[in-house]
């Protein structure tokens, strides 16, 4: 993503599209992995609610954890989908050469958005996947 912004700053129109597409690819891979993860949770009855069941504990906190897990990762994924939509909107614009060194606020703005969603993941990853691991 930053490389797309950089290309835009330098006015290299074709490169912008390339880097944007690369960003989209990586973003999609992330979402696909997330999809498998959700499927796995589904199969193991880890969706909070009536059918929630986890082996070896009846602690309500376990369910609360999965509530937070789904709320946080779900919102993050939602924002990524929005981001992918924005990127998909930018690629044809870039191919048509609409961005130049003087005019690339769109690329810049979407870049800021994308990295912001990034930062969220930086915090979610240790919070949801790593904390408490050392007990295991």
């Amino acid at each position: 993503m930053v490389l797309a912004v950089r290309s835009a700053q330098l006015g290299r129109a074709k490169q912008i599209a390339g880097w944007l597409a690369a960003t989209m690819t990586l973003g999609t891979v992330f979402l696909v992995i997330k999809g498998f993860e959700y499927h796995h949770k589904w199969v193991h009855h880890l969706i909070p609610g009536e059918g929630f069941h986890i082996a070896g504990t009846t602690d309500p906190a376990a369910q609360t954890f999965f509530v937070l897990y789904f709320c946080m990762t779900g919102l993050h994924a939602l924002h990524m989908i929005v981001g992918l939509g924005l990127l998909a909107f930018l690629v044809p614009k870039a191919l048509r050469g609409e961005f130049s060194a003087e005019n690339h606020n769109w690329v810049e703005g979407v870049g800021l958005y994308w990295h912001f969603v990034d930062i969220i993941w930086i915090f979610l990853f240790p919070l949801l996947y790593l904390l408490g691991r050392h007990h295991a």
């Binding site: 990295h115 930086i122 919070l127």
Partner: peptide, 24 residues
């Protein structure tokens, strides 16, 4: 045990700072 959480969060803050400073 909270020290583990603190370390994880400290690393996360560092990473976020890097992203904000350079990528953004």
């Amino acid at each position: 045990d909270a020290i583990n959480d603190a370390v994880a969060m400290a690393i996360a803050v560092t990473k976020a700072t890097l992203v904000i400073l350079f990528f953004m």
